[in-house]
């Protein structure tokens, strides 16, 4: 094989830093991240990891521990956790991955990185007060009547608007 045939792989360089992990540690739910020993129990338990190659919870924690802030916050990986908590149940170091990913999501959201489906669902909830207003068709209303249930679902849509205004309308949220 001559020198010309060897393919040049782009050099990947990253300077490890615990700044991002420390940042996550300060968030609500992110406190346990430093306890991770990267044993892989979480990924072995994760149903999402078993059905798709792109998501590995252990690897995501590793990226946070190594300080790959930009990569983690702009990717959709933290949003792929189903919050089923099987990993949390089994983690022998008591690392609460699901909560850590929630903390990461909150940081990502503050910087404007929110997957479309999350944004649209949140917009809907904070507008209607509940999720399925558009899906509440006449047929379903009839079904409810037949079953002897209230047809007026009586959801409050005022409170959520206050919540939106205070916490989720851009700028510095907390």
């Amino acid at each position: 094989m001559t020198k010309n045939e060897v393919k040049e792989k782009p050099a990947v360089s990253h300077t490890p830093s615990s700044d991002f992990a420390k940042e996550v540690e300060q968030e609500y739910g992110g406190e346990g991240i430093m306890k991770c020993i990267q044993c892989g129990m979480c990924t072995a338990s994760c149903m999402v990891a078993s059905m798709t190659d792109r998501y590995r919870p252990r690897q995501l924690i590793q990226k946070i521990l190594l300080g790959k802030r930009e990569e983690v916050l702009t990717s959709d990986l933290p949003w792929l956790c189903m919050t089923c908590r099987l990993c949390e149940e089994r983690c022998q170091e008591d690392v609460n991955l699901s909560e850590i990913f929630h903390a990461v999501r909150e940081i990502a959201a503050r910087e404007g990185h929110i997957p479309k489906v999350f944004q649209s669902t949140v917009d809907q909830v904070l507008e209607d007060g509940w999720l399925l207003k558009d899906a509440y068709s006449d047929f379903i209303e009839e079904d409810r009547e037949d079953l002897g249930l209230d047809t007026d679902l009586n959801w409050n849509d005022e409170f959520v608007k206050k919540v939106k205004k205070r916490y989720l309308s851009g700028g510095n949220k907390k």
Binding site: C39, M41, A44
Partner: peptide
């Protein structure tokens, strides 16, 4: 990699483990 689960194959009595090769 720590083993998360052990599953049994009823007919063979063999076991399948699920692990992540870290």
């Amino acid at each position: 990699g720590r083993v998360a689960e052990v599953m049994e194959g009823k007919k063979t009595g063999n076991l399948v483990i699920r692990v992540e090769d870290t």
